[in-house]
Amino acid sequence: MKFFLKIFITNIEYIKDKTEEIGNEIINNISQTINNILHLFIKLFEKNNNFQSIIRKQLEIVLNYLKEDIEREFSNKIEKIKKELNKNLKVYNDEKEFYSNKIERLEIENKYMTEHLIKSGFNISKKFEILNKENENKTNKKNSIEFIKTKLISIKNMKEIINEIYNSKIEYDKKCIENKIPNITMELHMFNFFSKKYGLKNLVNEWIINIDMAIKIYSNEDNDINLFGKILRNEIDENEITFLNKLKNSINEYLQLCLINKYPLKSKKELNKLYLNKLENYLNEDEWKIILYSIYSKEEGKIIERRILKIIKELNNNRKKELLNDLKNSCKKNIVTRDEYDKINSNKFDLIIPYKEFLYIIMDYRICYKEKYLKPFIYLFKKYDSDINGILNEEEFIKLCDSISFIKKLGHSYIIQLLNKIDPYILKELLFQIVLKYFQMK
């Protein structure tokens, strides 16, 4: 009997272990096996009814216990698997959402870039051609003159075109306000301007490439062109056009006043002639200092003065070299004596500066100052301008405001209030220039 019981228990344990591994179907097999064993016991101990009933009861208890135990374990396992599955499902859903958003974003970006390439006439082969010619320009001066004449817009022409574009944009801005239609960036306006003026796509593209090249070449020597480039790239306020024009007028007025004080006995006509002459030539030390400190404070003036003196030093060194060369050329066998050399070297040149150079330094200081002031705003705007077109949608604008701690502290209602002011007609296109205008309001 004990032997059979032992076999029975061993069988049960074996089956229990197996069930854990295999699964729910095994439960039926266990029941079947136990029933078989029971029948075997019944046959063996038929004669003893009492013993038979005891065994049956005990076996039934063991069977029930095992059933419950297995069911509990299985339900726990199933629960665990369910949780894992749900967890994985959530991860996959999140990933799916992320990638679908990314695809959507890339589609928009792709669309914008395609439009941008067409609009700005970015033609790689043409650019290569221009760059190749530019390289030739460095090695062959004669060819370069022809190239500049045909391809590179002169500073004077560039300024005229820029003014035409500015005036046309002012008119367009007025129309937008009157008709309550969304405004466009200066870059897009420039494209429309050339399209309207020249019509032919190739011609428009050629103009845009030429403008682009001229901006790159002249930005370091002309403030107006530098400013135009920055406006196209949404790096500065459009109001700076007016501000810099006023600054230029102030400089000219101070120069006129300076000349009147310096030459009180000269007639108006003579003074005007002198003034026009100054615009094309040099400003004396007293003149540029009076103008500088009339416009800027002592502190700022000192900073600019250091920059002016640095330029003057460079110019004077160049003049010394020129003098030495002239002397060498005039001497027999190009030999200069030590005395002659020392004489030129000890020459103290006046601290004079070309008017154009002075104007550039003063205006450049202002542009740099404004750029520094706008830097944190521009950084945030570009961060949230996902399609890099200089325009935010409502969602991007709210994200931008939320990223600024002091605005976030004022609450969502403040941001919505700001949004309503910037976009009162719900055009949902928030231009860099317009957002900047409201951020500058006091």
Binding site: Y373, P376, F377, Y438, F439, Q440, M441, K442
Partner: peptide
């Protein structure tokens, strides 16, 4: 525009001014 405290006085400044001031303060902290 936004209300801000400058030299213990409440003043109205632009959002851009405030953004700039915060940037300078952060730079100084760093």
């Amino acid at each position: 525009m936004i209300e801000d405290i400058n030299n213990d006085q409440q003043v109205t400044i632009s959002l851009l001014d405030k953004l700039c001031i915060d940037e300078i303060n952060n730079e100084n902290k760093e």
